[in-house]
Amino acid sequence: MDSKKVDLSLLDGVLNEYAQVKGSLITILQHTQDIYGYLPKEAIELISEKTGIATSEIMGVGTFYTQFRFEPVGKYLIMLCQGTACHVNSSELILQTIKDELGIDDGQTTEDGLFSLKCVACLGCCSLSPVMMINEDTYGSLTPDKTKKILKELREAAQ
């Protein structure tokens, strides 16, 4: 993504509310990611300036938590649950199916920018395992076929 396009004014509200509240770094980063879809370098530098927290510390926090990203993600972020129940119910097959269908690995985005894949900690929908979340929607009791169908539908919906 062209870094010049990062509109830093979008951060005004968040920074006005939290920049001077101690202990708010994670909250600020969460809002920042909600705004941009990831944490742009420019935003981190601005947060550093407004909060007085060193960029090395912000990056330290940002890279510690799995929630944060430093690259833009695809239109659909697939979060595949790695919980125990999903494991026991063969989530490995689902992971393989997604990789095969989309040609991407964990942490990658398809070339058309449509899908990103991320293996995540337990989503807590264990009774429906194996489970994945795509953006806000949860899909449970997955089978390879069902997974393919979901991906196909999303791809068609995007076109």
Binding site: A54, S56, M59, G60, T63
Partner: peptide, 8 residues
């Protein structure tokens, strides 16, 4: 804080 811990 010129340097920090990155990743985990």
């Amino acid at each position: 804080s010129s340097i920090g811990l990155m990743g985990r």
